[in-house]
């Protein structure tokens, strides 16, 4: 795993500097490696800097100290090698589903005919066939997130960065989307870094769960969460329950610390 890591984060620290307020120490000396085609969940209490780390890997914010490499190259800005899915979808509301999916394909210079074909393929893959000409505000939350995933997959990035992608969905939709994401991942085998604060979601989806401490965020522990069995039934198996409760107990103290810090 050390050699040929898809994502290599080394000693990254980060501060937020809101105007007229004290700077916030968001990340402290974080180091993390994600192997090629590995599915890693980043788990931590809210406000621990896990999204910040994802944004830094995405290249959206300048790196203050430390370094981040993606496929061996230093990250200096965003690029189509890293596809991103945000919690609130970030679909362009003035473009149709098809227009959204085509947007990235146009940018990377895919010829028109081929772009249409590829867009259709990914729209079919996320089961939005028939909604190509719908605008985002005509779709339900789950459909919006499918469209956002199709848009990201269409430019065929090596790495998927997902920032609490199912956090804004209701519980039932969330379960369905988890299944769909797993099936897409099994078909496309991309490297996935998945930020969440939902323990069961992390343990169920990921091959490895990386836990972070409360602010300033540090890496606390990394736990292997591969199980012999696949499918949602695994969540009732004792080894799943045991792993999940172990992780929950480790995280709980941090969550309490976050609440206490906010109250003070």
């Amino acid at each position: 795993m050390a050699t040929g890591a898809a994502i290599a984060v080394e000693n990254v620290s980060h501060h937020y500097r809101p105007p007229k307020k004290r700077p916030v120490h968001a990340l402290d000396q974080v180091s993390l490696e994600v192997g090629d085609r590995e599915f890693v969940a980043l788990l931590g209490p809210s406000g621990c800097g896990k999204s910040t780390l994802l944004y830094l890997i995405g290249g959206f914010m300048p790196i203050e100290s430390g370094s981040i490499r993606v496929n061996g190259n230093l990250v200096t800005g965003p690029g189509p090698d890293r596809g991103v899915v945000f919690q609130h979808f970030a679909l362009f509301p003035w473009k149709t589903v098809l227009g959204n999916v085509l947007y990235g394909l146009e940018n990377i210079g895919v010829p028109r005919e081929e772009a249409r074909e590829r867009a259709q393929k990914y729209i079919d893959m996320v089961h939005l066939t028939g909604f190509e000409d719908a605008y985002p505000n005509q779709l339900s939350g789950g459909m919006k997130q499918r469209a956002a995933i199709a848009r990201t997959l269409a430019i065929d990035p090596d790495i998927l960065l997902m920032d609490e992608p199912f956090g804004a969905l209701d519980a039932q939709t969330r379960g369905l989307m988890q299944e769909e994401l797993l099936s897409i991942w099994q078909r496309t085998r991309k490297t996935v870094l998945f930020v969440t604060h939902d323990v069961r979601e992390a343990v169920y989806l990921a091959e490895r769960v990386v836990m972070m401490t409360a602010r300033p965020g540090r890496i606390m522990e990394s736990v292997d969460t591969r199980f012999d069995e696949a499918g949602p039934g695994v969540m009732d198996r004792p080894e799943f329950v045991e792993k999940a409760s172990y992780i929950w107990n480790r995280i709980k103290g941090e969550a309490i610390a976050t609440v206490a810090a906010r109250a003070s």
Partner: peptide, 17 residues
């Protein structure tokens, strides 16, 4: 919304676009 701008960037759009 900065996430819109970030999405466009990670989808390979130039600043002008």
């Amino acid at each position: 919304d900065r996430h819109l701008v970030w999405s466009a960037r990670s989808l390979g759009a130039s600043e002008r676009k």
